[in-house]
Design a binder for these strands. Structure first.
Length: 751
DNA sequence: GTGCCTCGAGTTCC
DNA sequence: CTCGAGGCAC
């Protein structure tokens, strides 16, 4: 396989020959695999052949054979990379931009661990490589797969490509039975420039920066191309390990080095924040001469036992932080301001810039957030950019926040054209002309058109098919938008997606005969849609795109109600209470206004209570409402938003039409953790000696328990340390099980 | 009522 | 990735 010609360099004749050969090889491999017990080809080779076949077909679509292996079951040229679920999640890091943030980081760690300010606590400091992270899984010392970070939970299988990287060993000696090594794939400056020169010679497109070159090279369908690209790898972390690597981060890195991985030579042990900052400055000084891109310095708590105690927040470890270098800045001219309309109707201004290079990328658009951001003055009169507003024609300073999102940092007033006028933010929707209203206290202005507004309707549909929601293969944002405007097969609401197949069957002009479509792709689309007729309840809930209900809230709701019928019934029952609470909020707001005008103190809660009393809410409604807003993670704002969506005739009818198309709405998996405290409500009281309060809470929650602050009838377990007072007494009165700290540690198996 | 922390919704470029 | 805002603990 190694002496194969890169797909990019194949002639048409060669490609035709090779497609024939690959069809043959893969067909035989399939027979061998399904017929015998002993497949003649390794999975890795099989994948590599299949990927190469797909890559050649992608370059010469007209050469695709009728018996193409891409069309066989389980093969999909678009999804050439399989998915791999990480055994241990790949998280991102929280960021520090100032030395002060690093001081805060150290302080919060000490507070979490209950360490005094002068107690010894060491950190490692290492350059943060600007590449892409990769997880390498070794079993019995052999590389079994390599996966990109993806969304942190599931990544793409790039094993065949990773194997071609010299600095990634395919075999390890003296390694734990299972070892996941994590690190960064990158390209050096010299190799990047040589690659771009070669690309230019061949008349192919060049890369904007080494990171893009590395990412592009790793994601090649054809591993032969990856092999020809000089990628490198630094190891700096690990995922699942069957035996501990070491006791400290520093030792673990040394161990990875001993196993044959490249580890960064600038990794240092620091014993204070001052030493960390000093090392940061040293690395910053060397930045230009390192020969590869870095974008900051990463600090990690050195002691691995402490790392374990610190654990994780939702998406980041508590024990590490990235100290970023200041972002690169560039000046350019603001050519115009456009308004985009999102799925909630939010009008978002976008700056159209005279293209300028910032941090190795040409930027021509930048976010302007909202009306106040352009005006340079917030709702409460506070200054933004020193109070300077932004006008079309201005010279503006641009940077990429987090090295990604372009933003406008400053305006050069001395270069402002005389005729430049303050930007007038539209008060009607540019897409549908409906009034655009800014609610009191809100930063955003929203189109009031609802689904009448084509922009909102399309964005809502895009959200419906997005990754966290229906996630229909072959039906992305682009296709949905096309179908929305389609004359023969229009899709204007979610239910329409599920009637596509039936409508296409009745149409004279078939989808399969259109440009860009064929028998196979139409068949695949309909099949992918049908697969989603069985959908987890939380995905459906999220997909509806109800304001304030995101992925997490949807999951919370599904858990709380346990089924689709239960939630619709509850929302219908709670409707009178929802209306009464909205009226009460309005009464309270009115009172606040009146009181302000009259210069007296507002009696907000009195006004609210009076309104509620007057509303005379039926008990069943009050109960359903209370149950809803007391659900975990759900408050009055989300509850009202949900109630509105389900009570609105049009919206409800659309939801019901959608549900009628579905086969099954799967109830959420009950969180059946094996821990004895899963699902229990636990209260900690008294002083804890082996852990801090924050730690105990985080640990209990990780095991599926709920931690409350006070003892009530809902409490299942009280953990009482020395000095426990009223809470222990109350628990005794309520006959609630009470144990001490050691008892708790034994119970959860941490003793 | 105040101050975290987490979540939602917005955005760019390849 | 960041900002604003909702939820919740103090």
């Amino acid at each position: 396989m190694n002496e194969r010609v890169a797909v990019e360099a194949l002639t048409e004749d060669q490609a035709r020959d090779e497609l024939g050969r690959l069809a043959d090889i893969l067909a035989r491999a399939n027979t061998a695999y399904h017929g015998d017990d002993a497949p003649e080809m390794s999975d890795a080779d099989y994948d590599a052949f299949k990927q190469r076949n797909a890559a050649i077909e992608a370059r010469f679509p007209h050469l695709k054979r009728a018996d193409s292996p891409s069309d066989q079951v389980g093969a999909d040229p678009v999804e050439a990379f399989g998915k791999i679920r990480h055994a241990v999640r790949m998280l991102s890091l929280s960021n520090a931009f100032e030395a002060e943030d690093v001081v805060d980081f150290d302080r919060s760690i000490r507070s979490y661990l209950n360490l005094k300010a002068d107690a010894p606590l060491a950190y490692t400091a290492e350059p943060k490589i600007d590449g892409l992270s990769l997880s390498l899984r070794y079993e019995a010392g052999r590389l079994v797969h390599a996966a990109t970070r993806g969304d942190g939970v599931t990544g793409e299988n790039v094993t065949a490509n990773a194997r071609t990287i010299d600095e990634i060993p395919t075999r390890l000696t003296d390694a734990p039975e299972v070892l996941e090594v994590r690190g960064e794939v990158y390209m050096s400056h010299a190799d990047f420039e040589a690659l771009n020169a070669r690309q230019t010679d061949r008349g192919q497109k060049t890369f904007a920066n080494p990171r893009n070159a590395a990412a592009g090279s790793l994601r090649q369908l054809d591993a032969a191309i990856t092999k020809a690209r000089p990628l490198r790898f630094f190891a700096y972390a690990w995922g699942e390990v069957s035996a501990p690597l070491a006791d400290t981060q520093m030792q673990a890195i040394d161990r990875l080095g001993a196993l044959g991985f490249a580890v960064n030579p600038l990794t240092r042990l620091c014993r204070s924040v001052d030493e960390m900052i000093a090392h940061y400055r040293r690395i910053e000084d060397q930045r230009a001469t390192l020969g590869y891109d870095i974008d900051g310095v990463v600090y990690k708590v050195d002691d691995l036992a402490l790392q374990q105690r610190l654990g994780f927040r939702s998406t980041t470890p508590r024990w590490a932080i990235a100290h970023k270098f200041p972002a690169e800045l560039a000046w350019t001219r603001l050519d115009g301001i456009d308004i985009q309309v999102g799925r909630t109707g939010a009008l978002s201004p976008v700056a159209r810039l005279h293209p300028v290079t910032v941090g190795g990328v040409v930027v021509s658009n930048a976010t302007l957030h909202n009306e106040d951001y352009i005006a340079g003055r917030g709702a409460k009169g506070e200054e933004i950019r020193g109070g300077k507003d932004i006008r079309v024609g201005d010279w503006v300073q641009v940077y990429r926040a987090g090295d990604v999102i372009p933003k406008v940092a400053d305006v050069d007033l001395s270069k402002r054209p005389e005729e430049a006028e303050p930007y007038r933010f539209p008060d009607t929707c540019p897409e549908c002309g409906s009034p655009a209203i800014r609610e009191e206290g809100d930063a955003v202005r929203r189109c009031t058109g609802g689904l009448i507004c084509p922009a909102q309707a399309v964005e809502k549909l895009k959200h419906f098919v997005s990754r966290g929601a229906m996630d229909i293969e072959g039906l992305g944002a682009k296709q949905v938008e096309a179908f929305y405007h389609d004359d023969h097969l229009p899709v204007t609401e979610p239910a329409d997606i599920f009637t596509l197949r039936a409508r296409d069957a009745e149409n004279l002009s078939k989808l399969a005969n259109r440009d860009g479509w064929g028998e196979t792709s139409a068949k695949n689309l309909f099949q992918a849609i049908d697969e989603k007729r069985i959908i987890p309840m939380a995905r459906l809930m999220f997909g509806l795109g109800i304001r304030h209900v995101g992925e997490v809230a949807a999951e919370d709701l599904a858990r709380h109600y346990g089924g689709w019928a239960a939630i619709t019934t509850a929302l219908d029952a709670a409707r009178p209470a929802a209306l009464a609470h909205r009226a009460a909020d309005e009464a309270a707001e009115a009172e606040r206004q009146v009181a302000q005008d009259e210069g007296r103190r507002a009696r907000v809660s009195d006004a609210r209570n009076a309104a509620l009393a007057e509303a005379d809410i039926p008990p069943r409604a009050a109960e359903a409402w209370a149950d809803l807003i007391n659900a975990d993670g759900i408050g009055p704002v989300m509850a009202l938003s949900l109630s509105d969506a389900f009570a609105n005739d049009h919206e409800r009818a659309a939801i019901d039409r959608l549900v009628a198309e579905l086969t099954e709405i799967e109830p959420p998996e009950s969180r059946a953790t094996d821990s004895p405290v899963a699902g229990k409500t636990v209260v900690f009281t008294g002083s804890l000696e082996k852990m801090t309060r924050a730690e105990a809470k985080a640990r209990a929650e990780a095991l599926g328990a709920k931690v409350a602050g006070s003892v009530s009838a809902k409490t299942d377990l009280l953990v009482a340390g020395p000095g426990a007072g009223s809470k222990a007494k109350k628990a005794a009165e309520l006959d609630i099980e009470t144990i001490d700290e050691d008892g708790w540690l034994t119970l959860i198996g941490d003793a």
